[in-house]
Nucleic acid binder design. Structure first.
Lengths: 201, 201
DNA sequence: CGTCTGATTGGCAGAGACTGCCAAATCTCC
DNA sequence: GGAGATTTGGCAGTCTCTGCCAATCAGACG
């Protein structure tokens, strides 16, 4: 590693953080490969660390949890979601804003191939699915005030915003599950629209 | 368990299973008491076993998981839900059937006091909330075919049933959260109706 | 009543995730 | 090249959970 002294690259700091990021990615790729090869529960931290060439201790320093090896990327997901909602024009309604956020979030997927593989893994592993749902709930709570500000001020119903946000996410999940069931056939956002339309008919 | 010579008794059976059930309840009460006293994560299995007067090994034989000490009662919840949906009159729509199921499930709570305490515990402990959500998803999947049979056969939209079930549960969760936020003020089913109305407006 | 069978329990060892602690290696800056 | 800061690795330990085996206990049979 040590590329010598070398200059200051374009982006930022110290050529050292770059090594760190490389190591992190190495760990991540190894983990993902093993997870898809032999299953999440059947893969031990020790094995990942060994094959990635780091100690267990450092692996836990990079990713605090085994679940974070998959769900860690959901961090970006969450921030993108909230920021997209926040950036929507002021006259956009709650449903519109949420839909735009989902659309933006879906663009994070590098390709349908990898998305299918990753989503399948999460959906078929109980512990991963549970962890994902937990983070999702926290994300909903973050979104709550932003959505509340976009409701018609005429009728302030108790728990209205919460119901709307929860419903949007539920339909998004349903769309993902349906998409997964059909092996990636169609577009998730279309399925979301259809599901929501069926609900609000 | 060999029913042995059978009993005849209505519910009881061998006087021995009764002891078992007693032990199980003893464990459960101890666990719940400790959880509410000092928190879920701060309570160890060893402590529960010690104070309940059993070995760790038997505790794990009764309840396979630490989470099951709380979520185990959700089993009844799930079965009641599915059976209530199944028992609804044939002409009841999907929304009606789901609402009836939630109403029936809510009647399981012994009182608002205990319900509040229990729900608060689950909602405020990350691991418990995640486990609860995981079981909830499985429950949704069980309900899926039952609800699908109650949809208007005219327009078979892909993923329609899944979106509806997910939405119903989402609104139920939102209602529970709102109810919890208001310290048990009002009726959960009313909040559910209001939330769903806000969504389907 | 003694014994025998089958189920339950308890203790022990161990796997696996995760955390604190301390020494060694490494990078940065002078 | 050396001082200081950061990172890494290894070790020990906690906690949940599982497999294994001996000890125990309720009931059945002679």
């Amino acid at each position: 590693m040590t590329q010598g002294t070398q200059g200051q690259g374009s982006t930022t700091s110290t050529l050292w953080d770059r090594t760190r990021q490389l190591a992190a990615q190495e760990i991540l790729q190894t983990a993902l490969r093993l997870f898809t090869q032999q299953g999440y529960d059947e893969t031990t931290i020790a094995q990942i660390a060994r094959e990635a060439g780091v100690s267990q201790r450092t692996l836990f320093r990079y990713f605090g949890t085994k679940e974070d090896l998959i769900g860690g990327s959901q961090e970006r997901f969450v921030t993108l979601l909230t920021e997209t909602v926040r950036e929507q024009p002021a006259d956009a309604g709650a449903w519109e804003a949420l839909r735009a956020a989902f659309k933006a979030a879906l663009s994070l997927h590098t390709g349908p191939e990898q998305a299918l593989e990753r989503l399948r893994l999460v959906h078929h592993t109980d512990s991963l699915r549970a962890a994902y749902l937990g983070k999702r709930v926290r994300c909903q709570e973050e979104l709550l005030p932003l959505v509340e500000a976009r409701l018609a001020p005429s009728a302030p119903v108790r728990g209205q915003a919460r119901a709307i946000v929860a419903t949007a996410f539920a339909c998004f999940d349903a769309a993902t599950a349906t998409w997964l069931e059909g092996n990636g056939q169609g577009d998730i956002l279309d399925l979301y629209d259809q599901g929501l339309a069926a609900v609000r008919s």
